[in-house]
Design a protein around this nucleic acid. Sequence first.
DNA 1: TCTGGCACTCGGTAAACTTGAGTGCCAAGC
DNA 2: GCTTGGCACTCAAGTTTACCGAGTGCCAGA
Lengths: 356, 356
Amino acid sequence: MTPNDESASHLDDLGDSELNVRRAAILEAVVSQYIGTAEPVGSSHVATAPGVRVSSATVRSEMVALEREGYLVQPHTSAGRIPTDKGYRFFVDHLTTPGVLGPVQRRQVSRFFEQVHGEIETVLERASGLLSELTSYAAVVVGPSHETSTIRSVQLVGLSPLHALIVVVLSDGAVEKRTIDLDAEVGDEVLAATGAFLSAHLLGQTMAGPWTAPASGTRAVDGLVAAALRALDSMGGDIESDQVFVGGPARLAESFEAVETVRSVLSILEQQLVVVSLLRDVLDRGLSVAIGTEHGYEPLSSCAVVVAPVTVDGHDLGAVGLLGPTRMDYERTMAAAHVVGERLGERLAGGHDGRH
Amino acid sequence: MTPNDESASHLDDLGDSELNVRRAAILEAVVSQYIGTAEPVGSSHVATAPGVRVSSATVRSEMVALEREGYLVQPHTSAGRIPTDKGYRFFVDHLTTPGVLGPVQRRQVSRFFEQVHGEIETVLERASGLLSELTSYAAVVVGPSHETSTIRSVQLVGLSPLHALIVVVLSDGAVEKRTIDLDAEVGDEVLAATGAFLSAHLLGQTMAGPWTAPASGTRAVDGLVAAALRALDSMGGDIESDQVFVGGPARLAESFEAVETVRSVLSILEQQLVVVSLLRDVLDRGLSVAIGTEHGYEPLSSCAVVVAPVTVDGHDLGAVGLLGPTRMDYERTMAAAHVVGERLGERLAGGHDGRH
DNA sequence: TCTGGCACTCGGTAAACTTGAGTGCCAAGC
DNA sequence: GCTTGGCACTCAAGTTTACCGAGTGCCAGA
């Protein structure tokens, strides 16, 4: 007398991620319609969807089962259904088409990578803008950290009688600087000599330290060397931290109705460290999408995060991410992240790190 | 039979910015109450305010006059009054107390400037955070442009066989870099020599160009020099543009109810050039506050902008700005901008530009 | 097992009404 | 001649009531 229950329990045996073909079709219809309209989806709408060839009554009973299994919820009795995070997850995991950009956007990407030029930082920054334009969501681009890069050059430049600048060039093209207070006036020649001395000695080392202070010539130089090493030491932190670029944060205000949500998401984006570890966490788990609470960051529980790695020769050099509402257009967004991430990788590979 | 009209026309003769003492007191009461409550202010509330010793009926007739003169508006009949931009302007111009920070915030500022250290960029960035924390509005800090700085050093560093980096150090401590594609392999010594050669030749010049290409030794070096000069050329733009740091953009979502307002203000903040010229415009007009449409930027018409210059020896080296709703707490905000701007100026003066 | 039918639910909208803060005006008073 | 208390009036916001319709759950029949 309870055919639904029986069939449901039968289907439950298939395991969580496996659904009846029909149920899957219904779930997919609900999700895609909800993504489009942002309105709870009723059974009759689903019944008219392509791929679902049953009456609304049947859809209803299936939806009861889907709700029991946690894929859908009703905002209130006598309303249509809305996907849960689990529902979105199923939808995303079962996207048949690999996701393709529209022709306009495709050309936009091509044009971008044809025209963009300049230093990596510039490229990454502008790429974050591109991503956010492509998707109309907020975008994040994380560039490679300089942790493993080695020192290519150390230079000391005098700025004023009692101030000098230490400039370090790394093998990946990054440049870091630090001001040094001098105890006494030092001639340009001494500065240059000390720079050359340090350069020769530290060449090839990473910025990790600890710094060996090689005994050198005069006492004045030794003091200078010590100060330089202290400066190098303080660079460590900056060097470790990855470069983060946020594109189109204003789009968050388009994505979310509640101003409070906008605020909390914005303040997450202000914390670069959090952003980096968020993307890294998601990638490490082998995901390309984190929906709702899957990533474990409370304030982002109403968001979905789409991530794609930027790889060169199989090494992760960074990541791109997109931040939108859970009812985002996953297909297009994932396509955008994927394409831009990939082309960024090619771009980085084509850089000075060894095209030849 | 129309005493109000007569007295009003009499008062109008005093000119726009001069109001009856009583009217001024009433206007001030309306503004400050509205700033506090965000609710239209009724006559009876004003009548009980300190400094206003008349009945609500009198307040009412004065408010009619204030409305006729454009200082107040009624959102609708039978509602209290709200200040217009002109009303806020009068309020700001007639602030008696010069504006003082609370003891807590004062200590916060002191602690900040005691503790903060590192490069200018870091200091400016963190200062924008400080400002936004102090006021709970979004903050902007514009640092000095490098336009007038002169070249202190030019260095060429090899990164890979066919790529080199040109690193330019300016007299104010700024460092700019650019990648150079090499036509053929060049030894480190040649690179270093070319760098030294350029360095000697360009020393003391500003980044404005145009670059003279001094005839040098070998042909290989000449090609390298040409490439370096092209790179220097492309630095021009970057060098001109000032450094802009935005602090606490998330606070915008606290300041404004309408999500659309948040969006439009955020997208303004994304455009650094606009931000810079906004601040500069306001400062150039000798203002410290721009209310509503006074600054002429449409999307910010529901904002007030508080600005303070960062000066060293009378020279404007930058500016700090705060962005909030027109009903912001002008007194505290102006105080915060003033104090932080001033102390930033001292800090910059204490830098390498010549403490001694 | 599916489907059409039917009673039921309930959010959302609209209309009618009430409330109260606030106004404008006026006549009396200082 | 200002100022003030009084009074009638206005209108946004809240409350109540009613209604509509999308949508559901259940059931009996095919």
